[in-house]
Design a protein around this nucleic acid. Structure first.
Length: 110
DNA sequence: GTAATGACCTTGG
DNA sequence: ACCAAGGCCATTA
């Protein structure tokens, strides 16, 4: 199993600063698999059972839309967590997502 | 082994 | 500008 890819995704998500968000494509691109953005999302699917728990609520799609909120314990849970991060979410979309966007490929600058 | 699905992104009309 | 289709990788049926 390519759990390594999953672990890498989890690692990057965990490195996301508080009050910041990133996208699947950004993580995938950072891992060198920008084409595998879907796999990143799938990895998040297993983040629920991974320890320590991964802040998947900080990971959204390219539109800044909380597409995976439904995969959380409760759809509100994700927004609540984001609200705790001082991130405003409206209509399942992150406000100022462009500013809150945290790109590992740029911040970490591998 | 093949077929279908998915927390996506890019490109074409 | 908006709507539709394709592609890519991994997992599950």
């Amino acid at each position: 199993m390519e759990k390594d890819f999953f672990q890498m995704v989890y690692q990057v998500v965990r490195l996301v600063p508080k009050g910041r968000v990133t996208s699947y494509g950004a993580i995938a691109a950072y891992l060198g698999a920008k084409s595998s953005s879907r796999v990143v999302g799938y990895a998040m699917n297993g983040a629920h059972q991974v320890k320590p728990k991964v802040p998947a609520h900080r990971v959204v799609n390219r539109n800044g839309l909380l597409t995976g909120k439904h995969h959380f314990e409760t759809p509100y849970h994700m927004q609540e967590l984001l609200a705790k991060e001082k991130i405003i979410v409206e209509n399942d979309s992150i406000v100022d997502f462009k500013k809150l966007f945290w790109d590992p490929s740029i911040e970490l600058k591998l």
